[in-house]
Simulated assay, not measured.
Amino acid sequence: MPSNVEIKAKVSDPARFAEKAAELSQSEGTIIRQHDTFFNCSQGRLKLRDFMNESGQLIFYERPDTDGPKLSRYSISPTSDPPSLRAVLSDALGVKGEVRKERRLFLIGQTRVHLDTVEGLGNYMELEVVHLDFFCFVCFFLKVAEDLMEKLSVSKESLVTGAYMDLLLQGHKET
């Protein structure tokens, strides 16, 4: 199963964060609209990501609910009919909840930097250090993530645990 190292944090100044990410990536970033539907499952998380353009991905992932850098293992299957797949999975498993967001994606080296505006929650950032496989050293990727946190002025106090779905279920509100 592929893996990556992830970090998620609250962003208090999205314009400043975007400015720093654009400078580091030498790009204005790519805007991606996403509607994620989370389904009940016995382990990990299962979500259907609808890109709102007749394409999507079914994603299963496992990662610890801790703040700071964490190893995430995932499997992804593309779909060209997210609404139909959502209906089948909803009937079979039940819906845990939904997350709607606009994501601005920046690529910095092997890291995907996301500036997310999450409906009902506000502004967050995610770092995903990708291309992590069995032969790579996790410590190296943790260091890459921590260095980017520093360059993007992400404080340890702003780190969050869990997924956006968890924050919504826990009653977190947009600030």
Rank of each mutant, 00 (worst) to 15 (best):
S3A: 15
N4K: 15
E6D: 11
E6M: 11
E6Q: 09
K8W: 05
V11D: 02
S12Q: 12
R16F: 00
F17G: 01
E19G: 02
E19D: 05
E19V: 04
K20S: 03
A21Q: 03
A21I: 00
A22C: 01
E23S: 12
L24V: 02
Q26F: 03
S27R: 03
E28A: 08
T30P: 01
T30V: 14
I31H: 04
R33Y: 07
D36W: 09
F38T: 00
Q43V: 08
G44T: 08
L46M: 06
L46G: 01
K47R: 13
L48H: 01
R49P: 00
R49K: 07
F51V: 12
M52Y: 01
N53W: 05
E54N: 14
S55V: 14
G56F: 04
Q57G: 06
Y61T: 01
E62W: 11
D65Y: 00
T66M: 00
K70H: 06
K70V: 05
L71F: 09
L71S: 05
S72N: 12
R73V: 15
S75T: 09
S75N: 09
S77Y: 10
P78M: 04
D81M: 03
P82T: 07
P83Y: 05
L85Y: 01
L85S: 02
L85R: 00
R86T: 05
A92S: 01
G94P: 10
V95W: 04
V95T: 12
G97Y: 04
G97R: 04
E98D: 10
L105D: 02
L107N: 09
I108K: 07
Q110M: 15
T111R: 08
R112N: 13
R112K: 11
T117Y: 10
V118L: 09
V118H: 07
E119Q: 15
E119H: 09
E119W: 12
G120A: 06
G120F: 06
G120I: 07
G120S: 05
G122F: 05
G122R: 03
N123R: 12
E128D: 10
V129R: 02
H131N: 15
D133Y: 15
D133P: 00
F137T: 15
C139G: 15
F141W: 14
L142N: 14
K143I: 11
A145E: 00
E146Y: 07
E150A: 08
E150V: 06
E150S: 10
L152I: 02
V154I: 15
V154G: 14
E157K: 03
S158T: 05
V160E: 10
V160T: 12
A163P: 00
Y164C: 12
M165N: 07
M165Q: 11
L167A: 12
L168C: 04
L169T: 07
H172V: 13
H172L: 08
H172D: 08
K173W: 12
E174K: 13
